[in-house]
Nucleic acid binder design. Structure first.
Lengths: 207, 207
DNA sequence: CGGCCTGTTGAAGACATTCAAATGGTGTGG
DNA sequence: CCACACCATTTGAATGTCTTCAACAGGCCG
């Protein structure tokens, strides 16, 4: 069990990650930089998500806490024991990795083909969807806090801070969402938000 | 062992893929559509790549041959036998899935943060890199055929046909590549091409 | 109170897209 | 064998979206 402060690096690209860990609370980003400062966030780590895989691969991206973060880490030795006693565990790791792969590929569609408004809507939809899965009533306004600053959201969406801000106010202006606080979002019309994402029906939302 | 013609669908999104198959020759794309016609190619299947995973997940994207394609498929029953007799196989599947995940995340950086020229350069670099890994001399001009039409390349790069075309001629004009035929590419200056990708050093190329 | 950080808003500019037309190569039919 | 049609690709000009540059507002902490 380990805790990190906002902005603290959990691991860096190139590190050999020996442990496997699950997010207990808070959030972190997986990000990759382009040397001249451009950054792309390639994945989010939200509660219940997994960091690292058995085998201790070399990390290809930075892992940075975006809020106070608590991880539950499993030492390599203990993990080996668990895997030996629970053969089904490896299949679970494969499943979860496949799920991450699908999420990454879905996000490629967001980055490659969607407009700024659709990207922001997709981001909000992903977070709202998490709330609904976690038990929120889809027929009432869904509220949550953004796990990312505008800058981080921009890096996740392949946009600039300013564009993210403009699209959020645009969605607010059009009555799709409310922005009660800097980080807080209230989705007034979930169905409308889904339309704004440009996706067909409920087509594969990233985790 | 099965063959497909150019443009033929190998599988469609939503299909339950029972088999695992490796690409013997030819190429295919994994693609996801947005209903209004926009398409994003989320992965390439080139010789030696793998399609499908043990477990028979539901496919989240279409699989379409882009050239005459030959697959070597393994029936579920045989696969089960192999996995039973070769416990290390599951670890290999996990490794390969992790590699695919890293490739997808790398490509997210291309789609989210790179300019048109950098995207096209990244695409060519990926293909040139394959040739070098396959034994081509990196100090001589590297030649290969594009596995995709301009339209497919555009869908892979998150650009339009016209932009892809313009960037290719731009790279040709600047002496980085030659375009001997419609599909053929000859990289005159591999190091220069790498610079054009916008990547640092040799930073994680997609497979 | 003043400084700093994050976020918002405005105006000008750049890059990729869109619309349109021309080129080139391939295959078919006369 | 040549003419023609068709397709992918290239090239050109105009448009649009997002970015860039800039200024401002609000919240938090010293």
């Amino acid at each position: 069990m380990r805790s990190y402060g906002t902005g603290e690096a959990v691991a860096r690209a190139g590190d050999r990650l020996e442990v496997v860990a699950t997010v207990v609370s808070g959030s972190a980003t997986l990000s990759r930089g382009l040397e001249d400062g451009r950054t792309q966030i390639v994945g989010l780590l939200l509660p219940a998500n997994l960091l690292g895989r058995p085998g201790g691969q070399r990390l290809a991206h930075d892992v940075v806490a975006t809020t106070p973060l608590t991880l539950c880490t499993i030492r390599p030795h203990d993990l080996a024991g668990l895997r030996a006693s629970q053969p089904a565990l490896d299949a679970r790791f494969l499943e979860m990795t496949i799920a991450d792969l699908e999420a990454a590929r879905n996000w490629m569609t967001v980055l490659g083909r969607k407009t700024a408004r659709e990207r922001v809507a997709s981001f909000l939809m992903m977070l709202a969807h998490r709330e609904v899965v976690a038990g929120a009533d889809p027929n009432r306004p869904v509220s949550f806090d953004l796990p990312l600053t505008r800058e981080q959201a921009a890096d996740y969406l392949g946009l600039t801070i300013e564009t993210v801000s403009r699209q959020l106010t645009g969605l607010k202006r059009d009555g799709v969402i409310e922005l009660p606080t800097k980080r807080g979002v209230k989705v007034l019309d979930l169905e409308r938000l889904l339309i704004e994402t440009g996706d067909d029906a409920d087509g594969g939302l990233p985790t």
